[in-house]
Design a binder for these strands. Structure first.
Lengths: 341, 341
DNA sequence: TTGTAGGCGTTATCAT
DNA sequence: ATGATAACGCCTACAA
């Protein structure tokens, strides 16, 4: 059996397809009540719904929003995906989710695939890579999208001219550094994420500037980079094991890393925060359920995802009046006051 | 600027659109090398890619897979989503992700929306509701989809005749019960999930059958239901607080619940597993990062998602030779041997 | 107020 | 080996 088409409806209601289309799309187009009724009955009878494919072909625009994430199973990205999918539905759209597996090539490929699908817009969740070739490739795609009238919204800095809504990551790093300093910490290890990704550098810079302001000479051998994952956090600690006695606090570039770090420290019988304090970035839900609860800088992932869809779908939203998102420190129980080392 | 169409390519290559279509789609259709070359050059020059919308209209089938989840930010569902999205891309498809917010109405609506988009298939991640009206509504949609040739794959039981790949949840409950009994536990609290969802009952039944086999009379007032979330697990414990001294173990219907339970117990200075043992279901990644690591029954979420796409996309896969997925107990550190109460 | 017809980009059928 | 054309379902000028 096939789905009913507008023709079937027209036939059953004894009207033309144009009339059917009008009662469907032109709310205030003059159609006689009798005809309108007939059409609506036929639609119901046949369970007719317009074909999105045909509409998309005709209008050269689909009711689809593309979302590119690095790993949908990572709480950061799934929080964003939640915002995007829920907001999309609210606007009558659907979200196409692409998982790059943290691979640059894949990410670029997805730009193309999504455009082939005539998406109404594309949301880029992850921050950009510092790699120049990548940025150029990205720039080409952004330009092409603009020519086609497809908005692309980044939820983290890309170093490419494009609409971006994001928290100030330099400030995030400062927040972290200042908080630790305020609590008397001077010997701090910094566990970064993937150094190839822009935000990693920005957060570290912010952290270092906080150290400088506080007159603290940061030991650069106490700075490490890996990836924004749990495993990476754990592994970083393994490599750090012989220097744990030198430090009183660890600053992690995101919550995942902190969770890995936390596990390592617990396994090695260090008490948080009594022995070592811990801060990170994100405020993913699990930070409320670890022991101790993690002090972290909240990034409004859900809201960012939500807003990006709004920018794409709502014609009233001007992309020149982008909202400002403020990073906020959430103090919980992973930082202790350290008077003196 | 507009995207190049097959006509543009045909014009540039001085051939007909039919020829272009052939070099694109009919690999072994006889086309002279010279013409083929011209066409390929034009395609490259114009950066032409076929419009998915037009293909979808023409073929009455899109390269889209619909996925319905209850909460994409829930590790259970995001693991499935990861399997689905990655597998989809591998087949040249894209995944449309719908978030029902654990609302039945939404779920039903998504069936319809996805069909409007001409999806190649639909994957239902969550188990069905016991609600009869829901099951009927679901049945209608499944039947309609079948008539349209759209496969629907459930990754958990629905009590509706449809293709389902899933673990045996009764067995899961038995596994849990037996493991606890083997370790000498006789006074066990059971924290279930949403009792309206089919698997919740199945797991509990399995657990109870294990108790019966062991000759243990389960205290039914020690059985509670809430939801499959962290918050619900925590809240269940709050309501249980005055009975904690009666029990030696807690069996949770999934890992989320266990994480909430764990947090409550820790806040109340109970040591796991020395004071109370804990088991659950899922084996989501975080269970490896809690303290202690959670003993749980592994459900292969990623693989289920992956397989469902394979069934939809791969014409060689017969849906009558569905794979069997075995639930497996992962013993970690949340269960202690209890000789006697 | 309603109907007719062309075209969106493809693919497939039928000619040549 | 290649080309012309109809059709997929919808929307929208333009006609009536």
């Amino acid at each position: 059996m096939k789905k009913a088409t507008i023709k079937d409806v027209a036939k059953m209601a004894n009207v033309s397809v144009a009339t059917v289309s009008r009662v469907l799309n032109k709310v205030d187009y003059p159609v006689s009540d009798a005809v309108k009724k007939k059409v609506e009955d036929a639609i119901e009878e046949l369970e007719y719904t317009p074909s999105k494919s045909a509409q998309s072909l005709k209008s050269n625009k689909s009711q689809l929003i593309g979302l590119i994430v690095r790993d949908i199973a990572d709480p950061y990205f799934s929080a964003i995906a939640k915002g995007v999918t829920e907001s999309a539905i609210a606007y009558g759209y659907l979200a196409l989710v692409c998982n790059s597996k943290r691979d640059m090539e894949n990410e670029l490929k997805y730009y193309d695939v999504l455009m082939q699908h005539n998406v109404a817009g594309i949301v880029i969740a992850g921050a950009g890579y510092r790699d120049e070739a990548f940025q150029q490739a990205q720039e080409i795609r952004v330009k092409r999208a603009r020519e086609l009238g497809i908005p692309i919204i980044a939820l983290a800095p890309q170093n490419v001219a494009m609409t971006t809504i994001s928290v100030d990551n330099h400030y995030v790093g400062q927040l972290l550094g200042n908080y630790l300093v305020e609590n008397g910490h001077h010997h701090i290890a910094y566990v970064g994420g993937n150094a190839e990704i822009i935000v990693d550098q920005q957060r570290l810079d912010g952290f270092l500037s906080a150290m400088r302001t506080a007159g603290i000479q940061q030991d650069t051998t106490l700075i490490t980079h890996g990836d924004f994952t749990w495993e990476a956090g754990y592994k970083a600690m393994e490599n750090f094991s012989d220097r744990l006695h030198e430090i009183t606090a660890i600053c992690c570039a995101n919550d995942n890393i902190a969770i890995g770090v936390l596990r390592y420290l617990k396994e090695n019988n260090l008490i948080i925060p009594e022995n070592i304090s811990l801060v990170s970035v994100g405020d993913i839900i699990i930070t409320e359920y670890t022991t101790p609860k993690l002090s972290t800088v909240k990034i409004p992932f859900y809201e960012l995802g939500e807003k990006s869809v709004e920018i794409i779908c709502d014609p009233n939203v001007q992309s020149d009046e982008l909202p400002h998102y403020e990073a906020k420190l959430i103090k919980r129980n992973s930082v202790a006051r350290r008077c003196k080392l």
